[in-house]
Design a protein around this nucleic acid. Structure first.
Lengths: 198, 198
DNA sequence: TCCGATATTAGGACTAGGTACTAATAGTAG
DNA sequence: CTACTATTAGTACCTAGTCCTAATATCGGA
């Protein structure tokens, strides 16, 4: 017996952790013991078989992807709006909005809230973002509530452009700021039934 | 024959894409045909068996993890990446990404693709967007495929800032352009020991 | 040195989820 | 009615195991 049983089992655990896609036969070769011994070791250490290990990794990948991928259609709840003047929305940062690595909200969600609000505040049939200049002034964490305030600062009718300034806060702290230059078609529409198309 | 063979094969491809952890037997039940038929279909469509599919998913997860970057969290599919240099991703615009009123993609999806690519291209433990200057140069419609190309243009180590330029195209047409100023922690992460859990 | 406990190995039966192949049958178009 | 495609059935074989029994090997202590 080159190594003791405990020694081998410790190394086995390490080996599988580092390189989970290894068969019992390969492990038996590696440790110079029989396949049966490897299997007994796995039992004692409660390490599942190769296929189960592969499956766990794959399943984790799928749940990770589902969790992080979708961006909702409308980000934030509009709580106040005065067309072509100002609007306010709130957005609660949940775990699907943050980097799993560090729990910090991903920038595009803050942008999405601001952008959606900039679109919503415009009293026009068609409103699209043309340009934007944005600053992230503080990182936002899971569980925080972001309040975005949009203010229409300029309406150039002949140019089909409207400027909207959006500032987002967590409590009193500014976390995001953006100047949005919006394209608009100049056909007022909000007297229609609101279809909530933003 | 409720559906034609081609019809069934098309649906089969969809089904497996959406839900790759399904056995031939379950598929046979689902489509009301025999297992052999499902197997013939897979052959013709060059779809590998369940275990191979699981293995591919798991392998992809491991290689992604080795890169230690949030590739799984990128909006769109990363098709090429050279850390701290450049990256390319594709994003297919579907109906959930557009305004139902006019079928035009919401700006924040294009932003999200570009922003997440800018984050992914940075070879650092922590990368956050600090500022961005963006232009939407053409509206993108449902069904179109957006290719985003990110290029790292400047790395200021002492200032913990990196500039990334992202240009997104539909075919040859530029649809979005953005300059991203990214914050980074300056702790390169690629040389870490890989601690995969099985 | 022998005895009993622990460790290791061998072998067989069985499993899931297949591949690869042959053969039979069903349905449809010309 | 025949030719052809589509579908189904069945067999042998595969991998990477589980679960079980039985036979050895090795070691530590009296």
């Amino acid at each position: 017996m080159k190594r003791s049983k405990k020694d081998r089992q410790r190394q086995l655990q390490e080996k599988i952790k580092e390189q989970p896609f290894v068969t019992d036969e390969e492990l038996a070769d590696f440790f110079g013991v029989s396949v049966q011994t490897i299997r007994l070791d796995r039992m004692e250490l409660s390490i599942p078989e190769l296929r189960e290990r592969i499956k766990h990794v794959a399943e984790k990948k799928l749940t990770d992807e589902v969790r992080s991928l979708p961006i909702e259609e409308v980000i934030g709840d509009v709580i106040d709006i005065e067309l072509d003047k100002s609007a306010i929305s709130i957005f609660d940062v949940k775990k699907e909005h943050v980097f799993k690595r560090n729990g910090i909200a991903r920038g595009h969600h803050l942008f999405a809230q601001a952008n959606s609000l900039a679109v919503a505040v415009i009293n026009d049939e068609l409103a699209l973002t043309a340009k934007a200049n944005i600053r992230f002034t503080r990182s936002v964490n899971e569980g925080e509530r972001v309040v975005a305030k949009a203010k229409v600062t300029e309406i150039q009718e002949r140019k089909e452009r409207t400027t909207v300034q959006v500032s987002s806060y967590v409590g009193q702290e500014l976390v995001f700021e953006g100047d949005f230059i919006m394209y608009r078609s100049n056909t007022s529409v909000k007297d229609e039934t609101n279809e909530n198309s933003y």
